[in-house]
Structure formats: C-alpha cells, structure tokens
C-alpha cells in the first residue's frame, strides 16, 4: 500500500465549462468536484451512496457522485447545483424550494435539486407518485420531506404548463 499510484489527467465539462484536472484514481467524483474544481455545492453526507447529498447529473443522469471515481468521468458532461441558476435568475425548481420552505439547513438541498432535475429532464410527463417515489432516494433530516415533495410536484406542473404554452 506504500507504493504511490500515479495520478491521472481527466477532462470533462462541468455546467458547460471544460475542465482538466489531475487526480488520484481513488478520488471520487464528489471530491474531484469539490476539491479540484472548487465546486463545493455538491455535498458529501455519507460516502456510501445512501444519503444522496452528492447527487449530480452525469451525461444527463442523476447519479451519486460518491459512488463514481473522478477518473470515470473523463469525457463526461456534468451538471451540479452551481449550474442550475442562470446568473441571478433562479431555476423554477430553486424558486419552488424557497416558496415551499423545502429547505432548512440546506445541506441536502443540492442533492435533492439535482435528483429532481434529473428525473424531470428524463421524463417531463412523470406522474406525481413516480416523482414521490424517486424522492425517497435522498435523505433530509430537517424538513420531514413534505415541502420538498410539494416543491417538486409544483415544478413538474410549472414545466408542463410552460411546455404546453410554448
């Protein structure tokens, strides 16, 4: 175990911006984003893939970034919580979280935002029950979830309406 293993250079885009970093193979994608890209909005809550605080989108799919190594993301397109708002303008989901008091300490919030974003991107016509089932993927200790569910369902409706209007 004492032999040093060479770091590898990887390139990916995060929130549309290309990045090249050099990391140890053992570094998880979560730590790579936090430490090597300075994107600390992705939080690490358990490191064993259960709490979901580290959820990000990799090539459009909501995944646990603690269960992927940074090296595996070479060539991938990644979205994190920092990429949701466009400048000052919050995404509808972020606004719905604020409106519905769907966060308290805010530590789990980025993971929930990315989980819901991934689910709505994948299936904009998702049924409320399916969305609620997907929300059970992540843990929150402050809110008792009901306001998160409300914010998610409300956003799904908003997005459906705006698609209908367009």
């Amino acid at each position: 175990m004492t032999e040093t293993i060479a770091k590898t250079e990887i390139s990916f885009t995060v929130n549309g911006r290309p990045r090249t970093v050099t990391v140890e193979p053992r570094k998880t994608l979560a730590d790579t984003l936090r430490e090597d890209c300075g994107l600390t909005g992705t939080h690490v809550g358990c490191e064993h893939g259960v709490c979901g605080a580290c959820t990000v989108l990799v090539d459009g799919k909501a995944v646990r970034s603690c269960l992927m190594f940074g090296a595996q993301a070479d060539g991938a397109e990644i979205r994190t919580v920092e990429g949701l708002a466009e400048g000052e303008a919050l995404a509808p989901l972020q606004e719905a979280f604020i409106r519905n008091h769907a966060l308290q300490c805010g530590f789990c919030t980025p993971g929930f935002l990315m989980l819901i974003t991934g689910a709505l991107d994948e299936n904009p016509d998702i049924r409320d029950e399916e969305l609620t089932e997907i929300l059970s993927s992540n843990l929150c200790r402050c809110t008792g979830y009901r306001n998160i569910i409300r914010a998610a369902i409300e956003t799904a409706e908003t997005l459906r309406r705006s698609r209908g209007a367009a």
Binding site: R34, G38, L39, T40, G41, T42, H43, V44, T80, V81, E82, L84, A85, L90, Q94, F97, I98, H101, L103, G106, F107, T109, P110, L113
Partner: peptide
Amino acid sequence: VGRREDGPLVRGKGRFLDDLG
C-alpha cells in the same frame, strides 16, 4: 417572511465547514 438563508443555499453557495478552503 421568506427566509434570508435560502438564496445562497439553493445555489450551492452555502459555507459549510468542509467548504472552507
């Protein structure tokens, strides 16, 4: 009243202990 804490937190701009570099 809307929470003043929320803005940074939903943007991933919270400053939790491990975020202090």
